[in-house]
Amino acid sequence: MKAPLIHRSPMPGLGLSMGITLTMLSLVVLIPIGALLLKGASYGPAGIWETVNRPRVWAALFLSFRLSLIAALFNLVFGVLLAWVLVRYRFPGRRLLDGAVDLPFALPTAVAGISLTALYAPTGAFGSLADQIGWKIAYTQWGILIALIFVGLPFVARTVQPVIEEIEREVEEASATLGASRLYTLRHVILPMLMPAALTGFALALARAVGEYGSVIFIAGNIPLVTEIAPLLIIIQLEEFNYDAAAAIGIAMLLISFALLLAINLIQVWSRRRIGHV
């Protein structure tokens, strides 16, 4: 016998809570995303391909994805280190540092954008230092990379931190008694335990970076083919009332987001199967 769609329950408020949930979800999220997908369906794959398959669009998509990948890889390594230091070590200022990790989540992107630009522009505090060795950061791909590292910084640290807290010292002690060096224990015992959470954080940081707009556009320089990111290209198309092109690029980005979301879920299924919990 097939399970009923909704089980009978003595709890009150089924109609009201379901009504509010489904109505608001549809109105705010599903109908707008549906409108974009519908627009895409009306051009068909060939129509979307024709719009996307132009040097400027490819350059923007490729740039967004490539720099996001590098930024997320940096954050993967730095995030794991950060989580380890924050959980395991005690030092003055640790709580402050722990709070600072969330700053990129809390600071509005436009604020981060102009302050990063002020820092890394040739006249800025860091930019002028880099300028002396001929290294231009703001208005180049380096600037975009720094902005993307900034917005993705908390993800890996925050997903890995609870996992490190859960690790029982006995495991490390066992490894040490069996003659493993500290480095060997870290690499072959600790790191595999952190991997699923770290990869989830990595995918989240990547997804965030690919779609990031506010913190990037100020520092990017926005030169077509060189430092023009995909979200900016959508805005440019919209400002020229070129809705079809905007929608086509939007769909390409939506597909990348869905693929990353799927990857995150697969990582979690895989890790649940491997160690029994996330």
Partner: peptide, 30 residues
Amino acid sequence: FDFRGKAVLITLIDLPFSVSPVVAGLCIVL
């Protein structure tokens, strides 16, 4: 309540976090 499709519903609620804000704006314009 217990109902079918709960996991899908939760995924749909979380969806906006994985959509670029610019694409979100685009959806509303469209």
